[in-house]
């Protein structure tokens, strides 16, 4: 109870320092970052030694280490080398070939729980579209998708290089909102976009939006990008829009979903794929705007190293404990 009280007081102080005092936060210098990494590795080694001596650690220590591995890199000023994978390069090459003014359809098929992985992808993709004067049409097959799109668009429109372009809603980009019906929406869009989206997200009539007024169906779209966290998502877009209507499409998927999409990539049904946070970081590097995807990759790598370390420690405990014989 005392500890909880102290933590509460400290959090209130930290929050007030941010809100009232203008505290800008902490960032470790590269030297401090390296020292922290060494200390973390040394403590894991110490746990291994304890395990070899037969003193096993509790599961809460593992949770604590994963929490530390995820949190501490957010303070570090060191960065991780991002290597571009062929599937990310393929997506970048596909949009690089589009001419200025190309019409790009972006479907936001995810909700806030998947935002840590997909929002950086969305922002990087839209950044490329806006800086290369593509016309962006946003839709969502998930109810919260268009809201996620607006968050990304608002953030990008505040950037000086985008603000200078003076992009106009309805002319340079449009958010047609959410439509219920899953893959049947895609099917109907193959005949007529307007039949599924009679109004945009804000209630403006389809025919009143200059950007989409002359867009009848997928044949008027130059490229499509699908951000997907499950069903309906990339699989449904491939099955209906790509294979039936011949839409050229790239996918941005959560890491859970990405392995299933490689078959579509291999078969040429997808023109590029971004898988998980790694894919987001790679794409951010390609478009030249390193943001959260890149920053989070250090935490991702640290967490993976800690998981691998504990798998090793667990196996050592298993062997040292002689449990194999008992089983």
């Amino acid at each position: 109870m005392l500890v909880a009280g102290i933590i509460l007081v400290l959090t209130v102080i930290a929050y007030l320092a941010k809100v009232v005092g203008g505290f800008e936060g902490v960032q470790f210098s590269p030297t401090v970052s390296v020292i922290v990494v060494i200390l973390l590795a040394a403590s894991l080694l110490w746990i291994l030694v304890l395990t070899l001596k037969g003193r096993l650690i509790g599961r809460r220590v593992v949770f604590l280490y994963v929490g530390i591995a995820v949190s501490l890199p957010l303070f570090m000023s060191i960065s991780q080398k991002i290597v571009i994978s062929p599937e990310t390069q393929q997506l970048y090459d596909a949009i690089s070939e589009l001419p200025s003014g190309a019409k790009v359809l972006v479907s936001f098929d995810y909700d806030p729980p998947s935002a840590p992985e997909l929002q950086p992808m969305a922002e990087a993709f839209l950044y490329y579209c806006f800086t290369h004067d593509f016309k962006v049409i946003v839709i969502g097959l998930w109810p919260q998708g268009p809201q996620q799109a607006n968050l990304a668009i608002d953030k990008l429109l505040a950037l000086p290089e985008i603000e200078a372009k003076n992009l106009q809603y309805g002319i340079d980009y449009v958010n047609l909102g959410y439509q219920a019906g899953n893959e049947f929406v895609i099917q109907r869009m193959g005949g007529s976009f307007e039949s599924m989206f009679p109004t945009d997200y804000s209630g403006h009539p389809y025919s009143d939006l200059e950007l989409v007024r002359n867009i009848r169906n997928f044949s008027n779209i130059d490229y499509s990008f699908n951000l997907s966290a499950g069903y309906p998502g990339t699989q449904e877009w491939v099955q209906v829009a790509v294979d039936r209507y011949g839409l050229s499409m790239g996918g941005g998927n959560t890491a859970v979903q990405a392995p299933m999409m490689y078959t579509y990539l291999q078969a040429g049904q997808l023109a590029g794929l971004l898988g998980g946070m790694n894919g987001a970081a790679e794409f951010e590097k390609l478009v030249g705007r390193e943001d959260k995807g890149t920053r989070f990759m250090l935490s991702q790598s640290f967490a993976h190293m800690v998981v691998i370390a504990f798998i090793l420690i667990g196996n050592v405990a298993f062997i040292v404990g002689g449990r194999k014989k008992k089983l």
Binding site: G67, L74, A255, N278
Partner: peptide, 25 residues
């Protein structure tokens, strides 16, 4: 990939707590 995805969610929450909430980062 699944582990990577779950870690991403945890990173998202850690970022919320340390950046959006407390402003420590």
């Amino acid at each position: 990939y699944t582990v990577m995805s779950r870690m991403s969610l945890l990173i998202g929450r850690a970022d919320f707590l340390l950046f959006d909430w407390l402003g420590l980062v």
